[in-house]
Amino acid sequence: MTDDLEQLYRTTYASVVRFLFRKVWDADRAQDLAQEVFIRAMAHRPEKPRAWIFAVAANLARDEARAAVRRKRHLTLLKDDPVGSPTRMASAHETVEHDERMAQVQLALNTLTPRDREVLLLWDAGLSYPEIAEQTGLAVGAVGTTLARARKRLVDAYDQQHKQDHAAHS
């Protein structure tokens, strides 16, 4: 079991971090949470560790988001500073162009419903349809429908955003 988990850690860690990053928008925090997920997996020894890991990651990210909202509310009371807007989350090492692109994708992703977003991110993290279904409570047959809708909405939202930005600059 330990060997299985170690193997899973080697093959899945980066995906878990990416999955978490797209929810907490903080690379260091995403790594911390990913390690916490694997530590919990060691304690629980789940039967389906891969699906379990992403389920716990999603829960931790949800808790993190709630905590971030509380922190933001608190900080907003202290000073009139908009904390945590998407455009401020990009790494300082990224180029300006990449920052803008990333912000646009982020905004587009935020237009999705929570379920569509979850299914899309789980799929991108490499989970199979049955694994996504188990985690989200959807029927396996509904995963394809949800994914089709999510992809279309993401691209439409991105294109719409891109058009608005282009019109604003011209």
Partner: peptide
């Protein structure tokens, strides 16, 4: 979609 999401990768 895959390309968009790859933009949202951490370092």
């Amino acid at each position: 979609t895959t390309a968009f999401l790859s933009e949202l990768a951490p370092p």
